[in-house]
């Protein structure tokens, strides 16, 4: 007992110290999130901060965080600067890619949900499979397909036909490359979106005499919209930053905005200007994404409130 009586105050003190320590320490959740937070801090935030810092540095210098100027932005927004052309091409091609993919991917997504049955899994894998091969390799493959005396031209000539069309090194083939590359990024969110449409609702509408177009417009499309919009957003964000298609297939017949950024960081060695351009593009895409997400209330769309 005597031992216990002696031990008790120290135990109590130890316990209160432990409580205090626990109070000062991060919660379990925060501690578990720490590795991710550190990783994001180093891998995601640090480069963004560096880019942001460079955007305000003296042009063609490496005085990051040591100088402050708006000269880089002034150069970008100068009326004589033709960089808007690159921006126009990137936005235009991204919008067209989204529009074409929405039309192309919808029937496939519909098929994967309702038509292909047990073949759906295999067909899904076929659409995913090209993602395992480097994008550049796939695009060079298309060059070999379309090039003069290549697979298409050679085969047509072998069959005694006049030969393939001259499509390489044009903005059109750049668009084709983008549609091809980003198809899976539209298809799978759209497939998930369509999977959310309860078949009972469609059956009920049909029983009540609704036509196919009416069912599609009033039931399928609104209920699948979360998936469709997420697919569109994802595709747009990826497509506006696309470079390889315009370079490899398009033969730089147009210069896209990400290529302009690359030129600033390489041959021009004007990191501040490249950073300013990257910041403008990032803010543009960020604002557009936030605007779209503010309109896209997933909870409401999914009927949770």
């Amino acid at each position: 007992m005597a031992d216990l009586a002696i031990a008790s105050p120290s135990e109590a003190a130890a316990e209160s110290a432990a409580q205090l320590r626990r109070g000062r320490m991060l919660s379990v959740g925060a501690r578990c999130a720490l590795p991710v937070a550190i990783l994001l801090g180093i891998g995601f935030l640090a480069p963004l901060v560096a880019i942001f810092g460079y955007a305000f540095a003296t042009p063609r210098s490496f005085d990051v965080f040591a100088s402050f100027t708006l000269a880089n932005f002034a150069t970008l927004f100068d009326t004589s600067n033709t960089v808007w052309l690159s921006f126009f091409w990137s936005c235009g091609l991204a919008l067209l890619t989204v529009a074409i993919l929405a039309v192309v991917a919808y029937p496939i997504a519909y098929g994967l949900n309702l038509v292909f049955g047990r073949w759906s899994a295999l067909i899904s894998v076929l659409f995913v499979f090209p993602l395992f091969v480097s994008e550049n390799v796939r695009l060079y493959g298309w060059v070999l397909f379309f090039i003069k005396s290549g697979v298409l031209d050679g085969t047509l000539k072998w069959l005694g036909l006049p030969g393939g069309p001259e499509v390489l090194y044009t903005p059109g083939i750049t668009l084709f490359g983008m549609v091809y590359t980003y198809l899976p990024f539209m298809l799978f969110p759209m497939t998930l979106g369509l999977a959310l449409v309860p078949r009972d609702l469609v059956d009920a509408a049909r029983d009540l005499g609704a036509g196919r177009l009416f069912i599609w417009r009033e039931i399928e499309l609104p209920l699948a919209m979360p998936g469709i919009l997420i697919g569109m957003l994802l595709t747009f964000v990826l497509a506006i930053g696309a470079t390889a298609e315009a370079k490899i297939l398009g033969g730089q017949s147009i210069i896209v905005i990400s290529h302009d950024i690359e030129i600033a960081f390489t041959y021009s060695q004007n990191w501040p200007l490249g950073s300013a351009l990257a910041v403008v593009v990032t803010f543009f895409i960020g604002a557009l994404t936030l605007f779209a997400l503010s309109k896209l209330d997933l909870d409401r769309m999914l009927g949770r409130r």
């Binding site: 960089v83 903005p171 147009i254 210069i255």
Partner: peptide, 9 residues
């Protein structure tokens, strides 16, 4: 030259 390149399209 970079500006000239952009006028290709």
């Amino acid at each position: 030259m970079n500006a000239a390149k952009r006028l290709r399209g």
